[in-house]
Design a protein around this nucleic acid. Structure first.
Length: 877
RNA sequence: GCCCCUGUGGCGGAAUUGGUAGACGCGCCUGACUCAAAAUCAGGUGGUGGAAACAUCGUGCUGGUUCGAGUCCGGCCAGGGGCACCA
């Protein structure tokens, strides 16, 4: 006898315990089955999981369980992105050590994750703040240094004044720190960089091959890398005008077709030549200082007026020795891009035009749009950047812009000055090197020692890991490592004299750039020289996470994999074969009369449709229902996974998460939706219970023939099986859910028919059992606890978590007869049922006999009949 | 400013990629069971007309291609996202 109601609260921990005791989710490294690596982005241990985690891990777990049932050796691990600033903030605010705070949070979140019933291999758990983890990271840093992928350089960096640390370009969003939201300042500092630009070309080109990544993410990375093809041009400088015998000015351009439209040259305020000129010109020096002064915050830079200062130098046009161009220092020229210098062509570049209009320099249009008269075409306030024919350009006149580009490049490549070509084709990238130095405590120490005599000395491998000291104080702002009394004082490994440790730590994005490889390799800690297991497990077959990491983490990981290959750690380039970006969980907002927010659990909803009203449970005060938005603490529209799981159970929460929206779109968390999922759990349990009573015994022999009722049940089951198998592989969970509903409806109808007419043949009994088992298998990846309970109720004594995925009998999917819709002039008028293999003439004849067709034809003779086999018939009159 | 994505019932969304628009769920309506409620079960549910059969309109707007368009092409509108002095 099965109980009336399914009790998730009792059943879920029971099955979790059984899974854990039997260790069935551990992925063996030596296993003959094909591997499959499923990974969800590991969480930051903030202390509690949020509903977005539930969605993320429900998806990954559904896939992992499906692949396991399909016969793969599935690696599905979990870990903690455990370094980071919140731990330091907690230390400052609550006087608790970052390590203690982090490990407490990990323990709390781990127990939450366990209550979800995820099929994780916990034996491979990692935390990035564990010295066993970061010692490998320090080794990787040193190896990258050795192969030339790390450098230390002085450069302009983004300084977050709130976090008191440097940020990478990728971590500055709209001029603000990605976490603090503070306006970022520019500072000139000496920092460690990973040379991600060394792989710019490959990181871009390989995107084309990542065909299991979202197009959106690939596009974002493409734009971020920002490749442009252009020409490097060496302009000669008029010697009479230059201060220190500089003879050349190198510029980069993508518009060399417009070279005859040049009216000025411009240098970045940071350009060496600008500094040289400023040395003997106090007014220019003052202008450059002014540029630096006003250009600290990104917002200021973006809205700044175009300003310039004449250096007095003159450049010679590469095609005309008599043509001299004034060289300005201009605030809109970036030192970081190209060569830090440009030629100005105001007619075809808006920035140059704005500049020229301010200083009264000339405008020469050289590209004429096809709908304009070359004789009268002029540019005044709006630069023309479209296609057209060349004008005012001597030997280029009449060419298209593309032809002119080619011609200019060819001529300047051939022309030589001082033994070097005047022009060189060059590919330029927007991508900058990744600055990883952070002036923070709670991160991976950079394994470097600075020695007065020897310079920068790598920490020898035998001294790894460089451990973070535990005895640190957070009573003052700044980096506690820097002011620690002893930690930074060490002997130089090279000469033995007193030296100083690097006190900066690594960007926490470094930690997450290779963790997927660490999971593959549990024993590397014991012996770093062992051959890595990573190659056997990698790449990750399916990675799942939020789109907010489209550039940051996903680009860094692609870089790291290449760097690890170059340093001999891995044999592949791309870490993630399949990438899926899941949508957010959103919820409507509730606003009280006084403007403050109310939380969902404080609110009760009455009525529906336009009469839908919300009021406070406590006081009955009406609250305004606001827009549906991303869950956030500030809007109070969050729901706590613990509450949901305690009320409904993990399966209900997982089912609802996967059911309501396509997984890549936002899902609206609604109370009604969760209740619906909870009702369906009970309905499935009832159906399975009834089938367990009427269905055939587990070991009953398969009948030779099936009557119509049995066949219908089998067709429903195998049809659903075929669709769910396909949709699970594509992560289309919402469609899987719909299929399970349809099969449940079909089974319930069949049960009602059996009760109604009392007819239960042995073959129908067998088919009912088969269909119920298939149904349980189909929802197992999404609701594993309920599935185990149902599996046992159906008389199995093995675990469904270890059962093989059922095999589709494709014969059942093919119908003897098919019903085709019949259109007349494109409007549906009737249906026609014909044999599956009926010929076109037979179908045509049958269609023309249909009453609905005759009526629609109104006696007219059809001009032709279009028969699309297996699809549709259209009669054209 | 440039680039990209998305617009389908009251709501979330299906639609084998050019072939029956609205699968499945939520909500709602009607009925059964009940003293009653909950739960459950049965039926209905895009608009308009009709008792019904059926007809007609209908996938943001607009024009086109096609026997046939939610799907393809052109032009707009709205919402969302990315980049942004990148030469």
């Amino acid at each position: 006898m099965t109980p009336e109601r399914y009790n998730a609260r009792e059943a879920e921990p029971r099955w979790q315990k059984i899974w854990e005791e039997r260790g069935i989710f551990a992925a063996p490294n030596d296993d003959p089955r094909p591997k499959h690596y499923v990974l969800e982005m590991f969480p930051y241990p903030s202390g509690r999981i949020h509903i977005g985690h539930v969605r993320n891990y429900a998806m990954g777990d559904a896939l992992a369980r499906y692949k396991r049932a399909m016969g793969f050796n599935v690696l599905h691990p979990m870990g903690w992105d455990a370094f980071g600033l919140p731990a330091e903030n907690a230390a400052i605010e609550r006087k608790v050590h970052p390590k203690e705070w982090t490990y407490q949070n990990i323990a709390a979140m781990k127990s939450q994750l366990k209550s979800m019933g995820l099929s994780l291999d916990w034996s491979r758990e990692i935390a990035t703040c564990d010295p066993d983890y970061y010692k490998h990271q320090q080794k990787l840093f040193l190896d990258f240094l050795q192969v030339g992928l790390v450098e230390r350089k002085q450069s302009k960096v983004n300084w977050d004044p709130v976090e008191q640390t440097v940020l990478a370009n990728e971590q500055v969003i709209d001029g603000r720190g990605w976490r603090s939201g503070a306006l970022v300042e520019q500072r000139e500092l000496t920092q460690w960089f990973f040379k991600i630009t060394a792989f710019a070309d490959d990181l871009l080109a390989a995107l084309d091959r990542l065909d299991r990544w979202p197009e959106k993410v690939r596009l974002m990375q493409r734009n971020w890398i920002g490749r442009s093809e252009g020409l490097l041009v060496r302009f000669a400088l008029d010697p009479a005008t230059t201060p220190n015998r500089e003879s050349e000015l190198e510029i980069f351009t993508t518009r060399h077709d417009t070279l005859f439209g040049a009216t000025f040259m411009a240098l970045s305020p940071d350009h060496p030549l600008a500094a040289a000129a400023a040395a003997r010109n106090p007014a220019l020096a003052a202008f450059i200082a002014e540029c630096h002064h006003r250009g600290t915050a990104q917002e200021v830079i973006e809205t700044a007026e175009k300003l310039g200062f004449d250096t007095g130098m003159k450049a010679v046009h590469p095609f005309d020795p008599e043509w001299k161009l004034k060289v300005y220092v201009a605030n809109f020229v970036l030192m970081e891009y190209g060569t830090g210098a440009i030629f100005g062509c105001p007619a075809h570049d808006q920035r140059d035009l704005d500049f020229v209009n301010k200083y009264g320099i000339g405008v020469i249009p050289v590209v004429c749009p096809s709908d304009q008269d070359p004789a009268t075409f002029a540019v005044t306030n709006v630069a023309y950047d479209g296609d057209g024919r060349m004008i005012n350009s001597r030997f280029l006149d009449g060419m298209t812009a593309a032809e002119a580009k080619e011609e200019v490049a060819r001529r300047l490549e051939r022309e030589r000055r001082g033994g070097r070509p005047v022009g060189e084709r060059r590919i330029n990238y927007r991508l900058r090197d990744w600055g990883i130095s952070r002036q923070r405590y709670w991160g991976c120490p950079i394994p470097i020692i600075h020695c007065e005599a020897c310079g920068v000395v790598p920490v020898p491998e035998r001294d790894l890991p460089v451990r973070l000291p535990d005895d640190v104080a957070f009573d003052r702002p700044g980096n506690p490592l820097d002011r620690h009394p002893t930690w930074k004082h060490v002997a130089c490994p090279a000469c033995g004299k007193p030296a100083r440790r690097e006190t900066d730590t690594m960007d926490t994005f470094v930690d997450s750039s290779w963790y997927f490889a660490r999971f593959t390799d549990p024993w590397i800690a014991a012996s770093p020289t062992d051959a890595p297991m990573a190659d056997a497990w990698l790449p990750v077959d399916q990675y799942i996470g939020g789109v907010e990491h489209a550039i940051l983490h996903l680009l860094y990981s692609r870089f790291f994999t290449r760097a690890m290959r170059k340093a001999g750690h891995l044999g592949l380039d791309e870490p993630f074969d399949g990438m899926f970006t899941q949508g957010m969980v959103v919820h409507e907002t509730y606003r009280k009369a006084d403007g403050t927010w109310a939380a969902p659990e404080e609110v009760t909803i009455e009525g529906s449709g336009p009469d839908r009203r919300a009021k406070l449970i406590a006081t009955g005060e009406p609250v305004e229902i606001g827009p549906t938005e991303k869950m956030s603490k500030s809007k109070f529209n969050t729901v706590d996974p613990d509450d949901i799981m305690a009320t409904y159970g993990a399966d209900t929460a997982r089912w609802f998460m996967l059911s309501d929206s396509p997984p890549d779109r936002d899902v609206n968390w609604t109370e009604e939706g969760v209740q619906g999922a909870g009702r369906f759990v009970q309905r499935l349990w009832r159906i399975v219970g009834e089938v367990a009573e009427v269905g055939a015994a587990p070991d009953a022999a398969r009948p030779r023939h099936f009557d119509a009722a049995a066949l219908a049940v089998r067709k429903a089951a195998h049809g659903a099986l075929a669709k769910v198998s396909e949709d699970l592989a594509k992560l289309r969970f919402n469609l899987c859910v719909a299929q399970v509903y349809e099969l449940a409806n079909a089974l319930q109808d069949a049960l009602a028919a059996i009760k109604g007419n009392g007819r239960l043949t042995p073959d129908l009994a067998w088919a009912m059992r088969e269909a119920a088992e298939i149904m349980v298998q189909l929802f197992h990846p999404m609701m594993p606890h309920l599935a185990e309970e149902c599996w046992a109720a159906l008389g199995h004594n093995n675990l469904i978590a270890q059962a093989r995925w059922p095999v589709v009998e494709s014969d059942l999917l093919v119908e003897e007869t098919i019903t085709l819709p019949v259109q007349v002039n494109g409007r549906k008028r009737a249906d026609v049922t014909v044999a599956r293999d009926a010929g076109v003439p037979d179908i045509e004849a049958a269609v023309l006999q249909l009453e609905g067709v005759k009526r629609a034809l109104e006696g007219k003779v059809p001009k032709k009949v279009i028969v699309v086999p297996q699809r549709i018939v259209n009669v054209v009159a």
